[in-house]
């Protein structure tokens, strides 16, 4: 695994950014946090009694530029809801969110140009090829299709997808390969803030390692800030500079991975591991989480 991106990738990234000023992401201000979430609450009305249920309650986070911030939590803890709120796919009930100083409600279009997202399920037009899907995404983000194609090929090759595969329907690819294409789609638009919602869930160990290495490369060479939700504690420890633990829609702990381990050891007398931290602050074992996964829990 190389430590840096293919030089062609860096070059094509600049070359393809020929979008008109209106479509090009504004250069993020250096002094603004990459992501600022202040006292955000989101409720959903569910059931016949129309009772509101809080999915996210009074969550505040601040991410500096270039950071990879992990969000851990059991199923139903609100991780995906938080990602959707930052993505503008859900409206806020309370609080505010800013991306590089742009309010997501007042300056929606500017925020959309700065972010992209990879979700746990690689969502594509399955009958179309990776290239057709990627060119569609590139056009939506104002990129020139001719410039985007070599860039897409370079990213896909870096992720282990050969050029000869990019013309075949996505449905013929394995789940791991589809997820890599999803990551390539997000990277193609050069997001300043990348939201990764369990990007390695369900991948085999080799694919997981490929994706994790690529996330590190993106952080190092693309000047991207990344929010990563995951159930994989080793992944969080490897990639994240800071971690927040969500429980029932609330942030119950936030620190560096090392800080969380020290805290759980000194405050609760538990083993200094992320697993101990997770179980202590979520009040449940990992086995509980797996059982809920298998029963089809959704958040």
């Amino acid at each position: 695994m190389t430590a840096t991106l293919d030089p062609q990738l860096k070059t094509t990234r600049r070359a393809s950014d020929d979008r008109p000023a209106a479509a090009r992401p504004a250069r993020p201000a250096a002094t603004k946090p990459a992501l600022l979430i202040e006292h955000v609450t989101k409720r959903f009305t569910v059931g016949r009694k129309r009772k509101p249920v809080a999915a996210i309650t009074d969550v505040s986070l601040r991410l500096e530029r270039g950071e990879i911030h992990g969000v851990l939590g059991a199923n139903g803890s609100g991780k995906s809801t938080l990602i959707r709120l930052v993505s503008g796919l859900l409206t806020l009930d309370e609080g505010r969110v800013e991306v590089f100083g742009h309010d997501i409600e007042r300056d929606e279009m500017a925020v959309k140009r700065l972010i992209n997202r990879v979700s746990v399920d690689a969502a594509f037009f399955k009958k179309l090829s990776p290239m057709e899907n990627l060119v569609f995404a590139a056009r939506l983000y104002g990129l020139d299709a001719r410039a985007a194609k070599p860039q897409a090929i370079a990213i896909l090759e870096r992720l282990g997808i050969a050029q000869k595969r990019v013309g075949r329907p996505v449905e013929q690819m394995s789940r791991g390969m589809q997820q890599k294409v999803a990551i390539a789609r997000a990277l193609l638009t050069s997001p300043s803030l990348l939201l990764l919602d369990e990007p390695t869930t369900g991948l085999d160990p080799r694919s997981k390692l490929d994706v994790q290495s690529f996330i590190e490369e993106v952080r190092n060479s693309h000047d991207a800030t990344i929010v990563l939700t995951t159930h994989d504690l080793a992944e969080a420890e490897r990639l994240c500079s800071r971690i927040s633990i969500l429980n029932d829609g609330r942030v119950v702990a936030e620190d560096t991975p090392e800080g969380l381990k020290q805290l759980v050891a000194t405050r609760y007398g538990e083993a200094p591991t992320l697993e101990s931290a997770f179980m202590t602050w979520t009040g449940r074992s990992l086995d509980d989480d797996v059982e809920e996964d298998q029963s089809g829990g959704d958040e």
Partner: peptide, 11 residues
């Protein structure tokens, strides 16, 4: 196809 959220996120 499951792509609705991605299209709605596009600028």
């Amino acid at each position: 196809e499951g792509t609705l959220e991605y299209t709605m996120m596009a600028p």
